[in-house]
Design a protein around this nucleic acid. Structure first.
Length: 273
DNA sequence: CGGTGGACCTGCTGGC
DNA sequence: TGCCAGCAGGTCCACC
């Protein structure tokens, strides 16, 4: 579900709410996520004060005293929500982290594709989940020259190239398709067939797109909510994703959907060559 | 090694 | 109304 703008929105929300709060109790109701949550998870969090919240790609890092990090990934359907403890629990609330002051952070995930673990800060960078992450697309080191330098040797379709977290961290199917529309490039093209100027266009349009989407607090189709359970607004600004059969806002052509492996690609047949 | 396709889950939608 | 197929924002693993 959530890609970089959604995860960033959640992190910003949590960052305004969590630092200074102390974990008073942890309830692990359903440990079977993509990777089963360690049974020691509650005791690793218990009693610690939260110092900050950071993002790496699609991962959420809650920094705790004692050099511990609560690391979460929301998979396709996960939510991390800050609520008053009085609020009734919901179906698929798998982890409840109670804080002093009567509030809680709840991890909810119907499909259980997500991940939640506590790690030492010193071991973060060597985790398999972190080790191979590419640059953040909003960092200055991410640009057309970088994309070209690895894309020119890749036979994959450019959509698949862009959602590879080793290439760039945080981009998923929505924003890959949208960035390619803005860059005027079909998602089915091979990465190696895209020249320096094409890769420059992709990197620049992607950065603009992600900043805009963050400004609208992300894209909510069904599951995604921010840290306080509110919808994002960017879905109304999407130009091709989930719009097969509708008219392109630029040229009026009918937006197409193509199956690319297990997932859909969307494009305008006239604007994107 | 790089590239592809399926598995992992629940829930929703649309067609019959 | 019910049933079933297909689809969903991600990652990982087996296989070629």
């Amino acid at each position: 579900m959530p890609e970089l703008p959604e995860v960033e929105t959640i992190c910003r929300g949590l960052r305004a709410l969590l630092p200074g709060r102390k974990v008073t109790e942890v309830e692990l109701k359903e440990p079977r996520l993509r990777k089963t949550v360690n049974s020691g998870f509650p005791s690793q969090l218990h009693g610690r004060t939260i110092l900050g919240v950071e993002r790496r790609g699609k991962y959420i890092l809650v920094l705790l005293e004692g050099d511990r990090i609560w690391l979460s990934h929301l998979g396709m359907s996960g939510k991390l929500i800050y609520v008053n403890a009085e609020r009734p629990q919901a179906k698929h609330d798998h982890i409840i982290v109670k804080l002093n002051g009567g509030c809680e952070v709840r991890y909810n995930d119907p499909r259980r594709f997500g991940l939640s673990m506590v790690v030492l800060r010193s071991e973060l960078d060597s985790l398999p989940q972190m080790r191979n992450l590419g640059p953040d697309p909003l960092d200055h080191q991410f640009d057309g020259a970088y994309l070209y330098s690895i894309g020119c040797r890749s036979k994959r379709r450019v959509r698949d190239f862009l959602i590879d977290q080793r290439v760039v961290a945080g981009v998923g199917n929505i924003y890959a398709n949208e960035a390619l529309f803005r860059a005027g490039i079909r998602p089915t093209k091979r990465a190696s067939s895209i020249g320096r100027s094409g890769m420059a266009a992709i990197s620049e349009r992607l950065r603009e797109l992600l900043r805009e989407a963050i400004g609208w607090c992300g894209t909510s189709f069904s599951d995604y909510r921010d840290a306080e359970d509110r919808f994002g607004e960017f879905q109304t600004h999407l130009r091709v994703y989930n719009r097969a059969g509708e008219r392109c806002g630029v040229c009026g052509s009918v937006i197409k959907r193509v199956r690319m492996g297990n997932r859909s690609g969307f494009y305008c047949p006239k604007c994107q060559q």
